[in-house]
Design a protein around this nucleic acid. Structure first.
Lengths: 349, 349
DNA sequence: AATTAGCACTCGAGGCAGTAGAGTGCTAAA
DNA sequence: TTTAGCACTCTACTGCCTCGAGTGCTAATT
């Protein structure tokens, strides 16, 4: 019935007002302040009635009887789910970043780094950025260097201009000429291929080649190499910055909470695991308050989005702030970042 | 006079006791607790007399009349300056780390990373680690790759197995063969040289070569390249980890102080500046409380030490904790790290 | 039927006084 | 030179009180 719809619409609007006020001040908002923020088109008493309804619906809550209301996680969720309609107007507001932040970007690493800066400086939230896995990258060039009699360094340059290196220790000596041959072989056959595909390709070659032939030895060595690279670099390739954003915020005045949060954010392995789970998520995702997993993050919100190359998801970027986050700004900035990142990445190669 | 010396010696010992008690508990220590910690060889009244002297000397202070005493920065300084004698006994205590932490170290980057882990996990303090400047490194190999018609990537491998890359945009096109020639030229002439020396060498070549000759063009290009590399990488090559160590500590229960500290530690540029100033310091250095510069660090202590290759200082590592730091442990661990780092670094090439 | 003014009620924040006890400095005795 | 003893000081903690912001409900108004 039309009747009901109007009511819901207005309730949503009041909720939105409450969220914006609470986001700005961190103080539970009173009916009076809502009325004022709406230029008193309705009285505080009316707002009180609506607020009672919103509370019944679980969108807002009172810390105690004689206090104002603040949004619940559910309230934020409702707000975020209905963001799409409300904005996408002020796109120009974000545009000015471009020149500042993405000026002399040469590699995907620069891009990711700049994104994290932008999140810290413009949004004032923490960021967790993942560099791409080696395996999901496309190879441009491989170089093999003998760095000791029995030690070889492989330097892999990807299409997105990331340089990975891997050091491998051999059982015996190996000749320089032999190394060059192997490098040439891989470069010729595999340039432009995805690293994971290269591995499969080499396995194919190896499976049909005579074990004692040159091709057999070469492909066996190459497999060992690429496989080693793929397994190695995964560990620490995550960077968390801007943790200091939480310390000013009233939300974490409870130092126990703050301490726990810092501990989580400082734990690269854990953060990597969280972000890793997101890899195939696609698009922008909001995780609000209790929707997050390790206890200390339940007072935070996490917004993640991915970047990709030729349609393959390469990595993901996370924005972490208090649940009382400025979702609107985040939404707009992320939309902008997704666009810029993906286009710039394609432009790299 | 012998008399005086004994008095000073005993006062020092009491100071040391006070510091150890205060380091453990963060509570101003009373005369009684000092007496007890010394098995009541003297009474608390005697301790009180000595404490009065120590206070007069500025080594300890009272937060207020009816409280115990805590060390002043000057007290810590005295303690630290007299550490040498007191310990260097339990060297074996630290040895067990070696296997855990420095097992499969392949490059200087790994070494530095592991050192920072060790500081975080074993000492529970924050660490600031600097990676080496490109210019102070010794070159092993240079590779030039054409990544676009007008863009070249240089990949530099150093004797300590660091891989640096630099992307340079040219005015016009360049041929692959030409690139290889330049790379070969540099590799032949400069392998094993320090990067800063290479730059000088090339300038020398360039100054006598005919500008229109191949040698002139090659050396000009090489200069532009190496110079660019040297200038680029300096910015962000510092990593701060373990900031969460401060949050538990009673010292920073004042959240304002904590907030400010976090802000400083998160500021890579600033931290880089601080550590940079230390580069040529040599050996282990203690900076206690107010001896540090930006205001928020005045409640901390910073201990720095360097690592080197063939006698050239490469970089420096900093340990940052509350002024109420466990200096003894730090002293021992740093001594150990200096030894291990420098020997392992030499072993890399 | 929806809105609003008015009013009684609730509850936390903050100020104030009183108490307990930890720790000191001083004095006089050992 | 050390120590026991004691008076003194100052914080931390507690309970009590008041103030006021904010609510929910009721009755009047549109």
């Amino acid at each position: 019935m039309v009747y009901q719809k109007n009511r819901d619409e207005r309730n949503s609007e009041i909720l939105s007002q409450i969220i914006q006020l609470y986001t700005a001040t961190a103080i539970p908002v009173s009916s009076k302040s809502v009325a004022e923020s709406m230029d008193n088109i309705v009285s505080s008493a009316t707002i009180r009635n609506i607020m009672a309804e919103l509370e019944e619906d679980g969108f807002i809550e009172q810390p105690h009887t004689s206090a104002g209301r603040r949004p619940t996680d559910r309230g934020y969720r409702h707000y975020v789910d209905h963001l799409n309609g409300r904005l996408s107007l002020e796109k120009h507001k974000v545009k000015k970043f471009e020149e500042e932040f993405f000026e002399k970007v040469r590699s995907i690493k620069d891009l990711i780094e700049q994104s994290s800066h932008l999140i810290n400086r413009q949004l004032h939230y923490a960021s967790a950025v993942m560099l791409p896995d080696t395996v999901s990258q496309y190879m441009k060039h491989l170089e093999l260097l003998k760095i000791k009699s029995d030690t070889v360094m492989a330097v892999l340059v990807t299409m997105t201009n990331i340089v990975e290196n891997y050091i491998i220790k051999l059982d015996g000596d190996i000749e320089k000429g032999q190394l060059n041959k192997i490098a040439n072989f891989i470069n010729e056959k595999c340039e432009g291929k995805k690293v994971s595909d290269i591995l499969e390709y080499l396995k194919g070659v190896n499976s049909v080649a005579d074990k004692n032939s040159e091709l057999g030895a070469m492909s066996a060595f190459a497999i060992r190499l690429i496989d080693g690279m793929a397994k190695t670099d995964i560990e620490n390739e995550i960077f968390i910055t801007g943790m200091d954003c939480f310390s000013g915020q009233a939300d974490f005045s409870n130092s126990e909470d703050f301490r726990n949060l810092l501990k989580i954010l400082s734990d690269k392995k854990l953060m990597m695991k969280i972000m890793k789970g997101e890899l195939s998520a696609g698009g922008m995702r909001f995780y609000i308050g209790h929707e997050n997993e390790p206890e200390p993050l339940k007072k935070c919100s996490l917004v993640t989005f991915g970047y990709e190359f030729h349609g393959t998801p390469l990595g993901r970027i996370g924005i972490i702030g208090p649940t009382r986050m400025h979702y609107e700004n985040v939404f707009q900035t992320v939309n902008y970042l997704i666009e810029v990142l993906n286009s710039k990445i394609e432009g790299l190669s």
